[in-house]
Design a binder for these strands. Sequence first.
RNA 1: GGGCCCGUAGCGCAGCCUGGAUAGCGCGGCAGCCUUCUAAGCUGUAGGUCACGGGUUCAAAUCCCGUCGGGCCCGCCA
Length: 601
Amino acid sequence: MFLKAKKEIAKIISRASGLTEEEAFSSLEMPKGEFGDLACKAAFLLAPWQKKNPAQIAAELVPKLKGHKWVEKVEPAGPYMNFFFNDKFYASALKEVLKTGKSYGKGKKKGKVMVEFPSVNPNKPWHAGHLRNAIIGDSVARVLAHAGWEVESIDYIDDLGLQVAQSLWGYMHLGNKPSGKFDHWLGMQYVEVAKRMETDQKLQAETREMLKKMEEGNNEISKKARWIAEECVKAQYQTDFSYSIFHDGMIFESDIMHTIFHEGIEMLKSSNAIILEKEGKNAGCWVVKLGGKFQNMQDPDKILIRSDGTATYTGKDVIFQLWKLGKLKGKFKYKPFIMQPNGKEAFATGGNIPKPFGKADMVVNVIGSEQIYPQEVIREVLLHLGFDKEAKSYMHLAYEHVALPDEKFSGRAGTWKGYTADELLAESVRRAKEKISKEVPENEKDGIARAVGEGAIRYSFVRTTPEKKLIFKWEEALSLEGNSGPYLQYAYVRARKIMEKAEDKPSVSAKYSFQPEERKLIRELCVFVELVERSASAFRPHMLADYSYMLADMFSKFYTLCPVLKAEEGLRKTRLGIVKAFEIVLGNSLCILGMAIPEKM
RNA sequence: GGGCCCGUAGCGCAGCCUGGAUAGCGCGGCAGCCUUCUAAGCUGUAGGUCACGGGUUCAAAUCCCGUCGGGCCCGCCA
């Protein structure tokens, strides 16, 4: 609706000014203050070749811009030309939202995208840093889906890492019985083993030996390691679910090794993408010669296959990414792994069921910004292989890590203790519960506190741009007031309450005269459509967090100034329409942000 | 040696891609608003050399170059 209005007005401007429709369209913006609904700055563009000052051009152009069915008036304001929409426009915009409902803002059908996150080692609980990754990843997956993409959310599980070997050693030899949540318990074993390994050479040798067995597969150690990894992932996924984070599939490293690895290696070797070094320090290794911005590096050669024939981490990753992009013939077989609260089963590799995972048109990897370089290497390899299109749709969503005020999170040192995702949620829920009014019956409090506590954390983690480092502070992460998750939930709950109390249905009157607060709110509802598209194509869900806040803010202002249920008959039904439309749009937005909505607050 | 990210009010952030009207918001401060659809709310107020220096432009927080401060990366580790 808004977009349509914008396009039609651009046409009018184009005809009146001689600018192309594209130029006219991009000269239109939504002004901040009370400058109308649409501001046109085309006069700036016209000034150089008309050799007049922009204000004069605007004044002359304005009379020629009238006559659109949705435009009440056009006013020159210095060099700007401001369009004010009429009530008819606002009524139509409202009706559109009411009619479209849950599909409002939904984009046209696009291709298939695989989003990978958070790929945490399966030997410890998630801490605040992993949580940021997962919340960003889940939100990006949701916004891409709303924008029209077919989304597969996948998780890479490195069950062949040293960390798992160390944890397994702890499981077998430390003599502690598993108790409590398995990932927490296993994480503690890992910290203990890591500490001992610093000085214990025998232990070092033993874990190395275990790692070798794990890689070979088909033995007691490898089976135990896989079991431990799966148990840990199941525990980690309880955390996943408690934050409404969901996946479609889990790809285990051990399955990559015996399913697509050799094919991948052969593909690389037989291409011109990587070359076998005959001499020098990399003799015997297959390397990729880096170009572009890597050219001036001290060593612009990146080894993918070592001289002993094994692949480096980046080498393995290249193969995995090739699989995602549908470049390998090998297929994984899956097994049902865990039933998720959203009603969808999550599958893991290592079973005997085929699934259509992979073959994506676009890949989005949510990985820390410290891996920008290896991720660029992968893109470079794709280019060397001649996969230009794929290289362009290979996206690294780089995010900065979460740190504590005085130290980093370290899995090995155990600085995550006290800051696990589970502990954050428990504390957040506790604080939320304290705040619930005494009038709410005791048996309803837990459900409300859960939704609010979860929403507070999701919002606080998603609202900042990913490239900004996050210093974890309880007061900020768990904020329940102001620009916070609960503020959005509160606005939504208020709107829903009005709809519940109203006995009549909303119905937008053609004769309604919209108040300034109402116009502002409806205008903001219109923005949602374009915003979903922009947020998705930039892989920046924080834009929707920001938007939701502004939307809720405008509703709060409307709420205090415009009574709905007590409004006179002529106003009431249309205002109910405004409330309902707000409920729909904020609801859609909160859904994309993965935020739970409490029954009441 | 090279590369990437961050620097906006006391604190935490948005705006930068696509340059334009008084640089927005929250917390904290100060002053108000609950017999009125839920005060997890609303209103008002104070608080800013947009790190610094150049450049481009009619116009720069936004684009370009440089400097400084903070973080990260460049391994036959993962």
